[in-house]
């Protein structure tokens, strides 16, 4: 029996070791590098808090990138969560053809990032792209999308709103976990659809929604890299310069690994602040709700 327990621990080992090698050590290394100057060619030299000072003093793109990333999260996350919720509610029940509809909704999520970026680059093409041509056919003159500083960021939000398969699936599962009896009781009491949602579905889905929102905040900050890298390179005039792309350029194109690490640390702090805020707000809102 002792032997058995020991073997079990061995079976957990690859996962824990992988975690240490691929996540814990890199995290520590990043934290240390944030306080050094390092171009990988010569050994890192200690630089204290000077990276933070230099970034504050010289890097005029960083505030822009932070603001863009924040704006992106604020726009994309609510839209994505609401979209996933609406679709999950709409396609919840088993009916003829529902599998096909669900697959159609899930499909954009399956598409590899690079291909997805290229596809939307074509869709957003201001003159020959299908989106503006369809708009023109119904009498609307479409904007320049990715070439227009006002529309570039919303355009990337728009394309991200189509990739909500993960949230959709999780919320479907959440809906299926709600016992049918609850609704049956409500039906007897003559509850309306809205009341059912308000007093049964929503409260029971809440933990799922909180978890999803937290995860989505994280995902959407990260997922701006590939579209920005492939589609715009941060243009027009930094309108789509997000933190991950800025860090990539600083680190891998300008060989400033030290200040790249500093930005990474800043990004993690920023994301943590958002996560905690979201968590506190959603949680507080639940407690308040408990009284009505």
């Amino acid at each position: 029996m002792l032997n058995y327990r020991r073997t079990l621990r061995w079976m957990l080992l690859p996962y824990l070791m992988g975690t240490v090698i691929l996540i814990v050590i890199p995290a520590i290394v990043t934290l240390i590098l944030a306080f050094t100057q390092y171009d990988l060619l010569s050994p890192p030299s200690w630089y204290g808090f000077n990276n933070f000072r230099d970034l504050a003093q010289f890097d005029d793109i960083l505030p822009r990138a932070m603001l863009n990333s924040l704006l992106f999260v604020l726009l994309a996350v609510p839209l994505r969560i609401l979209g996933a919720l609406a679709l999950a509610l709409f396609l919840e029940h088993r009916r003829r053809g529902v599998g096909l509809y669900r697959t159609a909704v899930y499909l954009p999520t399956l598409i590899p990032d690079v291909a997805y970026a290229l596809i939307w680059l074509w869709v957003f093409n201001p003159i020959y792209g299908p989106l503006n041509q369809v708009l023109e056919a119904i009498g609307i003159e479409g904007p320049g999308w990715l070439t227009d500083a006002r529309f570039a960021l919303p355009a990337i939000v728009l394309m991200s709103v189509f990739q909500i398969g993960e949230g959709f699936v999780v919320l479907l599962a959440g809906l299926h976990n709600i016992p049918r009896d609850y609704y049956d009781v409500a039906a007897v009491d003559g509850g309306t659809g809205w009341q059912k949602f308000r007093y049964i579905t929503f409260p029971l889905l809440r933990p799922w929604l909180i978890l999803l929102t937290l995860r989505d905040v994280l995902l959407t900050t990260q997922n701006t890299f590939t579209p920005a890298y492939i589609m715009t390179g941060g243009d027009p005039y930094y309108a789509t310069m997000f933190l991950p792309l800025h860090i990539y350029k600083e680190t891998f194109e300008d060989f400033r690994y030290g200040s790249g690490a500093t930005m990474t640390v800043l990004m993690i702090c920023g994301v943590s602040v958002i996560l905690i805020t979201v968590f506190v707000v959603l949680k507080g809102w639940r407690n308040q709700n408990a009284y009505d």
Binding site: L22, P26, L40, Q222, I268
Partner: peptide, 30 residues
Amino acid sequence: TSLWLARFVLFSRLGWIDTIWAIIAPAMMG
């Protein structure tokens, strides 16, 4: 994204740069 840089440094020390191991490394941890 916060792991790119440090993993790059780590992989280059391990000699994994330009090998398939660098891509499939996450499979080690499931």
